[in-house]
């Protein structure tokens, strides 16, 4: 239950970096002011985690801004476009539940990464709670919100299998991770009167694709936007 390699730090760092970027796209577009604050808050936490993890590997900006799309190791789940608010909440529920359990294991496992995981797990607990509360409100709100929430959950379901593929250097019990995740997500969805999706959970290529640098098409455009300014001024400091 430790994290030992650059590959591991890169995979988890990229997850946080990419999801933070997606949440940053919400700024100025949220349904209520309180959500402007909350989504930015979560994005900032994730960006903080990304910076710590990427810095374990090398220069955070070189890694964020100068790698090609094929060199990113994030899950395909986190790169999915925001969609409507329910779609974003579904992505947050799936990912924050995973991250909470993962960091919980890493924090308990000792090793060099444990203090970082212990700090992150507190933030992620808040993210998970935020996603859960909104899943309940949207699932058990109006007919429209229920339909949208179910649609978001269903659309993202196929990207969830990837979270439980082994990652080099992340020594966790993936079986326990997957069982815990299913149990937690199922319990929230039951309380929200929503259905656990069925169908394959193999992502756009195969489970584990994002970790191998195989991404979905919207990701390339996201990376282009993220990197263009940095790349336009080689060697500049900001």
């Amino acid at each position: 239950m430790t994290i030992t390699t650059n590959a591991a730090a890169l995979a988890l760092g990229d997850d946080a970096l990419v999801l933070s970027h997606r949440l940053g796209e919400w700024a100025g577009h949220a349904p209520v002011l309180e959500e402007e604050v909350a989504l930015a808050n979560i994005a900032l936490d994730l960006l903080g985690q990304a910076r710590v993890l990427l810095s374990l590997v090398g220069d955070e900006d070189e890694l964020a801004y100068l790698r090609e799309e094929r060199a990113f190791r994030n899950l395909q789940l986190v790169e999915q476009p925001n969609g409507d608010f329910a779609h974003t909440v579904a992505r947050q529920l799936y990912f924050s539940t995973y991250q909470h359990l993962l960091y919980g294991q890493l924090a308990a496992g000792g090793g060099a990464f444990a203090p970082l995981a212990a700090k992150a797990v507190k933030e992620v607990e808040y993210h998970r709670d935020h996603a859960e509360q909104w899943t309940l409100r949207l699932g058990d709100g109006t007919a429209e919100s229920r339909e949208r929430m179910q649609r978001g959950l269903d659309a993202l379901w196929r990207f969830t299998g990837e979270m439980f593929q082994p990652v080099e250097g992340v020594d966790v019990d993936t079986r326990a991770l997957e069982d815990g995740w299913l149990e937690s997500v199922t319990s929230v969805l039951e309380r929200a009167a929503l259905a656990v999706s069925d169908g394959p959970r193999t992502g756009a290529w195969a489970a584990g694709a994002g970790r191998q640098g195989l991404h979905t098409e919207p990701f390339g455009r996201m990376v282009a936007e993220m990197q263009h300014l940095h790349r336009s001024h080689p060697g500049a400091t900001w």
Binding site: L17, H21, G24, E25, A27, G28, E36, V37, A40, N41, A43, L44, L47, G48, A50, R51, L54, E60, D61, A64, Y65, M222, E225, M226, H228, L229, H230, H233, A236, W238
Partner: peptide, 19 residues
């Protein structure tokens, strides 16, 4: 400019400001 901020430090500062 959040999605185009040229360094992660600047991006964090800008996100915090908009928040």
């Amino acid at each position: 400019w959040i999605t185009r901020a040229p360094s992660l430090r600047r991006k964090a500062i800008l996100m915090a400001k908009v928040q």
